[in-house]
Design a protein around this nucleic acid. Structure first.
Length: 548
RNA sequence: GGGCGCGUGGCCAAGCCUGGAUAUGGCAACAGCCUCCUAAGCUGUAGAUCAGGGGUCCGAAUCCCCUCGCGCCCGCCA
């Protein structure tokens, strides 16, 4: 959990002394420009004795150390904060703990499963959204104070993998197993199957596989590994790291799918030898085929049983096309198997193309690595425009590319579908990662040029300084909001707002050539800003550079 | 057909969970700002029946119902 002084809560409890039903929703950072914090009392206005109660609240709140002023305006008690208090609160936290807000390690173990894309080809823009959301989510939960492990479920069984294998065997047998060759075989096998019209070959192999044929399983796994290595490489380029890989085939070879079926035996029904369960409000869900082989869901249950043995809380990041699958899993794990562990899903909206859907098989996908490469190129051009010299150009370009791609995927609510457009992805102006990075760079360049000594004082605090301080003080609340709702996008939006507030500060509050007391104070504000920026940016994968 | 979700200026989004003060930003457009800490920026102008209709409420972009439009799901696939 986070450790910081929750002034909203303090104000709430103060208000409650006089009007008992005031709750945390009534005391908020004011979204309009009337005040820093407001207490919404509109709905109490018509009650008896409202005025004396309101006056009493006003009087008590006014005495609070962080309150500069408070006045009643059309149903609201509008509070302006003492920005020197905020300044000290933030700087003390940073001085004593090295961070703002500080956090306390919770013993609960959390698993975040993400990406888990079939290793049948390079990761495309649809799937990379999963990785980016999942990685940011794991950073966020860890920042909040939990021990987090990220997990990739490697789907090396099933029709698509068998097809990939068959494509190689049929069209490229003996050739080196490279991504390119495997992909070529994959496309050819689908064309072949469509022409010949017989999927019998695939089905026979699947059955063989399902029965646990060691030779076949290891061959398929070898191919999967080749593809997976490239996927991991692509993720690594975006600073996405997976802690653990679990192979689906292991649940077949170890017989754990059989364990699943026996544990669920009481709920199983029979249909021509196949076994299914009835999931309320859904339909018949099959766990065993008539021929005795398992299905994807069966293996996924086994995987979740494994996860539940290791983690208290399991979060799965998957596309919204799997909402029903998630519902079924929850029902099975919590209601039928009665696990107490928490299973949560973050369903994200699909990434489409202007021309339609992405498909590796059909070759209509846009690969993440291609977008990344283009971003690096574009970034390099932009950097060179500004600085002809320097060995750091590669590093800067890389960081801009990583940040831009991650930001692009997170700026819109994760639950909303997005349409990938090259033009938008490559845009560096407006609400983009470079905007956020640029505010940090500007802050840094002040520190390079200004030396401070001595004390700061708080006279003549400008509006832009106060606004920046208040915004920084909101940071813990933003982490909490993002964490509770599993919404990393709360932080990208926060970063935009914070950067914008800084830009205004930068434009309006001079530091060089200012009176020392004031410039000392502003320099400290700049330092705090950079600290919080770096902290929040890390959570969503935005990196910072000294110059750009 | 059934289920789930979405619909906010020309375009893209925030706000919706937890109802309240003039609906917040960006892109594009127009007009300005670099003898001064990086103009990837800042300031200003213009632009909105919050899909439509009904309901609840003192009060609705936000909650409920209906209609329309769009997306996703409805395999002994994964």
């Amino acid at each position: 959990m986070l450790l910081f002084q929750d002034i909203l809560e303090l104000i709430t409890s103060e208000a409650r002394k006089h009007i008992e039903t005031v709750n945390e929703k009534d005391v908020i950072f004011d979204p309009t420009e009337h005040a820093h914090i407001t207490i919404r009392l509109i709905r109490y206005q018509k009650e008896n004795n409202f005025k004396p109660k309101m006056e009493a609240i006003k009087e008590d709140v006014e005495k609070m150390p962080f309150v500069k002023s408070i006045k009643f305006e059309s149903g609201y008690l509008n509070i302006n904060l003492d920005s020197s208090y905020l300044y000290r609160a933030i700087s003390e936290s940073i001085e004593t703990t090295g961070t703002f807000p500080d956090s306390f390690q919770d013993p609960e173990r959390v698993s975040v499963e993400h990406t888990s894309t079939n290793p049948t080809g390079p990761i495309h823009m649809g799937r990379i959204r999963n990785s980016i959301i999942g990685d940011s989510l794991s950073r966020l939960i860890s920042r909040y104070g939990y021990r987090v492990v990220t997990q990739y479920y490697v789907n090396d069984s099933g029709k698509q993998m068998i097809s990939l294998y068959l494509g190689y065997e049929k069209f490229h047998k003996g050739e080196p197993m490279t991504e390119e060759i495997l992909l070529d075989g994959y496309r050819k096998i689908y064309e072949y199957l469509e022409k010949v019209g017989s999927e019998g070959e695939v089905e026979n192999l699947m059955e063989l596989y399902e029965k646990g044929d060691g030779d076949l399983i290891s061959k398929v796994r070898e191919i999967a590994q080749v593809m997976l290595d490239r996927i991991v490489e692509d993720m690594k380029a975006l600073d996405i790291h997976m802690d653990e890989f679990t192979w689906e085939s292991e649940f077949i070879t170890t017989g754990e799918t059989k364990e699943v079926v026996s544990r669920l035996s009481e709920s199983l029904h029979d249909e021509n030898g196949a076994k299914y369960i009835d999931v309320p409000d859904v339909r018949k869900i099959f766990l065993m085929r008539g021929n005795g082989t398992s299905l994807y869901l069966t293996r996924d249950i086994a995987y979740h049983m494994y996860k539940f043995s290791q983690y208290d809380r399991c979060i799965v990041v998957v596309g919204e096309d799997q909402k029903e699958h998630g519902k079924v899993m929850k029902y099975i794990m919590n209601d039928l198997l009665e696990y107490p562990n928490s299973l949560e899903y973050l369903f994200y909206g699909m990434v489409g193309l202007e021309s339609g859907k992405m498909s590796t098989r059909k070759g209509t996908g846009v690969y993440a690595r291609d977008v990344y490469k283009q971003l690096v190129e574009k970034a390099r051009e932009e950097v060179i425009k500004r600085y002809k010299d320097g060995e750091d150009v590669d590093d800067i370009s890389r960081k801009i590319a990583v940040s831009s791609l991650r930001f692009y995927m997170l700026k819109v609510s994760t639950s909303k579908p997005i349409t990938f457009k090259w033009e938008d992805a490559l845009d560096f102006n407006g609400e983009t990662a470079p905007f956020i990075m640029y505010s940090y760079t500007r802050a840094g360049s002040i520190l390079k040029k200004v030396t401070t000594s001595g004390k700061a004082d708080f006279k003549d605090m400008k509006e832009e300084e106060e606004a920046l301080l208040v915004e920084m003080y909101k940071y813990p609340y933003k982490i909490i909001e993002a964490y509770r709702n599993l919404k990393p996008e709360v932080l990208t939006n926060y970063l935009l707002v914070l950067s914008r507030k800084f830009m205004r500060f930068y434009e309006n509050c001079n530091i060089m050539g200012e009176e020392t007391n004031i410039s000392n104070r502003r320099v400290e504000i700049v330092k705090m800003f950079m600290k919080i920026m770096k902290d929040a940016s890390y959570l969503v994968g935005i990196e910072h550079v000294d110059r750009m």
